[in-house]
Design a protein around this nucleic acid. Structure first.
Lengths: 163, 163
DNA sequence: TCTTACTAGTTGAACGTTCAATTTGTCTTG
DNA sequence: CAAGACAAATTGAACGTTCAACTAGTAAGA
């Protein structure tokens, strides 16, 4: 057991600031999306991933990776979006365990209707309050954090089935 | 209805990077805290807020502000932590509607046991992957975002009782 | 003082996520 | 071509959060 390296005062302040900013921003976006489009942010991300895929369809596990969902979470989410008529499921010929999730016409309409408000929210709450230089910095900082955690997260994914 | 100002390619890239980084970091910390201390991050923040308060007690609404919880969320959370014996509730003499949430001995022990692992997680996943300059930048960026949203969030808080 | 408005806090139902198990199908190796 | 290991996806239960009442107490004005 090694010594604890506590946070310096400056680090402490940055951490609290980071926590406040990311929490507030996430909740703000969630509230707006719920108000304007009656869906949580994770559903929005699933719809975006599908809308960008060839033929607007993806295998469930590809969709899980694209939207950073666990398989279980995605399964439940797709169930609900299927019930709303936004997504349909097709059997997969190549691998009979698998299934395709496909964006329906209605789902396509829903995401297109939701996008403008969502983009406006992101712009107002994030890009409009930062200088171009800060935007650049935020990009690099985010890449560093994400790059470091990507391995860790992949490990967790793998363990999903293993237990 | 005004024109939609879509995100530029660079903004799009930064936004996706930001989303990936903050989501992964939050989930990583949540997983570690759950594994090491059997509690979600929000409970940790509640316990920290209480441990820093005079006499380790706060009125429910003060605690809600300190931990950025809605009143309802906090009420449920304190219920569960009370059942675990981490927090106790006392009636408030000054205002008989109110109640104090106080950290118990056990709650104090729990947060002190959890802190070292938590700090190590934050350090490894955040501060160790950034340069000192980037840490400074992140502080300023976070302050800008949080500063801008603080008003918005206060507004939402106020509306909590009003409806 | 009575009445109206407001504030502190709680509650139950609905929602979305996690966790662990389960089902079904594929791949590998002997 | 069987046997076990592995992979794709789903399920139900438990958990935590949100939402919309609701209870009870305080404050303010006539």
């Amino acid at each position: 057991m090694s010594e604890v390296r506590w946070l310096s005062d400056q680090e402490q302040a940055v951490w609290r600031s980071y926590l406040a900013a990311t929490t507030m921003l996430r909740e703000h976006i969630e509230r707006r999306l719920q108000r304007d489009a009656q869906m949580p942010q994770t559903y929005y991300e699933v719809l975006v991933a599908l809308s960008e895929a060839p033929d607007m369809k993806l295998r469930m596990s590809e969709l899980a990776d694209a939207s950073r969902s666990s398989r279980s979470k995605l399964s439940h989410a797709v169930n609900r979006m299927e019930r709303s008529g936004w997504i349909s499921r097709d059997d997969c010929d190549v691998d009979r365990r698998g299934s395709w999730a496909r964006l329906t016409e209605k789902g396509f309409a829903v995401i297109h209707a939701a996008a403008p408000d969502h983009v406006a929210t992101v712009r107002e709450a994030l890009f409009d309050v930062l200088t171009p230089e800060q935007v650049r910095q935020l990009g690099e900082i985010s890449a560093a954090i994400a790059g470091n955690l990507a391995g860790e997260c992949a490990k967790v994914r793998e363990e999903e089935g293993t237990l």
